[in-house]
């Protein structure tokens, strides 16, 4: 008989079949059969199903209540925050109308517990769109209200999402005092928070942070390097030599099309022999 050794795949399939047979063992274990199927004692399978029904019923009820409570909580929270936001948005108008700083500060003064979060959200939303002197005023307000210091302290939080959110907030507020803690995060954080920190540093636009981008590049997985380059572009012309260095060092990571785009951005000759 011509016997051929079986592949690993065969044994894996056999093991899987064995598993399926094993889980059906309880069925075969009942041989010889219970002839009196309508006996007075309740069968174990029926008991199991009844217990399962009981559990599932409460599962369904609790889940429905949970979803209901969740929905209600979020609706109420959203409505409350919207109402409070409207109150604080008057402060933005005062900033745009170039009202005195004290009046602006008064408009942003938190009055109830939890108001500081709402004030931060209002200020953050406006700072994404305004520039020039109004932006500087908003920054000053954030500083005076302790929002910047609060977010810097959040950078050490155990909750990674809280840390990441604080990083984002500090970036949008262009908080220069956060540069050093943000640079420190580049060597301690996970990749996704590193990216948020890099983005924030790029928004703050202090070119002294650029060499740290190179250092971070050494520790980032290659597929993330194009993203790093993309963030570096936010620095404007100051980043061009650094970008050039980055692309030269990790040329294989950048697809041809992306290289062309990058070179176009850098406004350099496409025929440069070193790229």
């Amino acid at each position: 008989m011509n016997w051929k050794p079986r592949s690993n795949l065969f044994w894996h399939r056999l093991a899987a079949l064995g598993f399926l047979l094993l889980i059906s063992l309880p069925a075969y274990a009942q041989f010889p059969p219970e002839v009196d199927i309508h006996g007075s004692s309740m069968r174990s399978s029926l008991m199991f199903v009844i217990y399962l029904c009981f559990l599932l019923f409460w599962g369904v009820v609790l889940l429905a209540i949970y979803v209901f409570a969740l929905k209600t909580y979020y609706r109420m929270r959203r409505a409350y925050r919207e109402q409070r936001k409207k109150h604080f948005q008057q402060g933005i108008e005062l900033v745009l109308m170039e009202e005195p700083f004290d009046a602006i500060m008064k408009a942003f003064e938190p009055q109830r517990p939890g108001d500081l979060d709402i004030v931060q959200e209002v200020i953050l939303d406006s700072m994404r769109f305004i520039t020039g002197p109004p932006f500087e005023i908003m920054k000053k307000v954030s500083h005076r209200l302790g929002i910047i210091d609060r977010n810097i302290s959040f950078l050490g939080s155990f909750d990674r999402h809280k840390r990441a959110h604080a990083v984002e907030t500090l970036g949008v507020m262009q908080a220069t005092q956060a540069i050093i803690p943000l640079l420190e995060m580049l060597s301690t954080e996970t990749n996704d928070i590193k990216l948020v920190a890099l983005r924030s540093l790029a928004i703050i636009k202090d070119p002294r942070a650029l060499p740290y981008f190179h250092h971070t590049a050494k520790n980032l997985p290659p597929p993330l390097l194009p993203r790093l380059a993309s963030i570096m572009l936010e620095f404007g012309p100051a980043a061009h030599p650094h970008l050039h260095k980055l692309v030269t060092a990790h040329r294989s990571v950048f697809p041809q099309l992306m290289l062309e785009e990058l070179l176009r951005e850098l406004a350099t000759d496409l025929k440069r022999p070193d790229l």
Partner: peptide, 25 residues
């Protein structure tokens, strides 16, 4: 084992397999 006994046994086996399938799924 009589035919009736075999029939009942077969039904039970199928029943348990189906319950297991349902439970696993």
């Amino acid at each position: 084992m009589s035919v009736a006994e075999f029939y009942h046994w077969g039904t039970r086996v199928t029943e348990v397999i189906l319950v297991w399938y349902f439970f696993l799924l």
